[in-house]
Simulated scan of single mutants.
Amino acid sequence: MQPLKGIAFKVTAIALFSLMAALIKATSDEIPAGQAVFFRSFFALFVIFAWLVQRGEFPQGLRVNNAMGHVWRGVIGTTSMAMNFAALGLLPLPEVTAIGFAAPLMTVIFAAMFLGEEVRAFRLSAVALGLVGVSVVLWPRLTLFDQDQASALATVGVMLVLGSAMFRALAQIHIRKLVQTDQTSAIVFYFSLTASGLSLLTVPFGWVVPSWEQAGLLITAGLIGGVAQIMLTSCYRFAPASVVAPFDYVAILFAILIGYVWFSEIPTAQMLIGASIVISAGILIIWRERQLGLKRGKARPGVTPQG
């Protein structure tokens, strides 16, 4: 295991996913979520194919040993994606990102339950600290009073993101299992293929003909999503799910920046305070992993710190 390398892959993937989400949000007023899922998944296949050819892994890189694992990963991941895309049309980007931070905690719990990974008190405390920051960001949405139509739609958006977070955590656990038997290329390719197929089932529910600008944004989202998906899947080869999961938190910085620049979504002081708490939790995880690596290196000369 190489925790720091896994963390680097995860943070880069999150940055790309934040940009992808902004592209999807920019089209959400007219493009249905199911159609957005198709563009994001189908055009990601071109990136994956180019990646396989460049690495000399086509077609052998697409062989699988756990076919049903890929099916379940595809269904769960596609459900999470669709719910998140639908929420982007109902809530500001930073808010969707903040609520989605429920996923890392769920991942830590699922990793302990289903993968038998050891999760120590320090890491759990850091995750809990991050969720305190999420709560600070979300506090204005927790009121049940004065529910006009806009507020009611926002509440639906909140529920969609929470559902997406749960399915995303389950998908991450499936990825962690799949990398033990199948190559990263196969995991990423079959997810995009499954998502493309499942999204076509939503055609009867109101797909539209996109404008050239909308089509360009959606295609770009798909290409960026393909690159991000490769990096996200790769990160689990270098670190346990419970280690890289807290780094979903850095997405709040990207979301706040993109939301302000692109959508004129001005973050409140409360949101900035909450985001600072969340990022502090991520820094604590990095510091702890470095300390443990140094201790292991001293205790076992000749073995890498991650060994």
Score class of each variant (00 low, 15 high):
L4Y: 12
F9E: 04
T12Y: 06
A13P: 03
A15G: 12
L19G: 11
I24F: 01
A26N: 04
S28G: 06
I31V: 09
R40D: 13
F42T: 13
V47L: 00
F49T: 15
G56K: 02
G56D: 15
E57F: 08
L62K: 09
N66W: 14
W72D: 01
V75S: 08
G77F: 08
F85G: 05
A87T: 08
A98F: 06
I99D: 02
L115M: 01
R123V: 10
L131T: 09
V132R: 08
V132Q: 05
L144H: 12
F145Q: 14
A150Q: 14
V156H: 12
A169C: 02
I175Y: 04
R176S: 07
A186T: 02
F189Y: 10
Y190R: 11
S192T: 13
T194E: 01
T202F: 15
T202L: 14
F205K: 01
E213Y: 09
L217M: 11
T220A: 12
T220Q: 10
I224Q: 11
G226I: 07
M231C: 10
M231A: 09
S234E: 14
C235E: 14
Y236E: 13
A245H: 02
D248T: 05
D248L: 05
I256M: 06
F263L: 01
A269R: 15
L272G: 08
I273R: 04
I273V: 15
G282V: 00
I285E: 12
R288H: 15
E289T: 08
L292V: 15
L292G: 04
R296S: 00
T304W: 00
P305N: 03
Q306G: 12
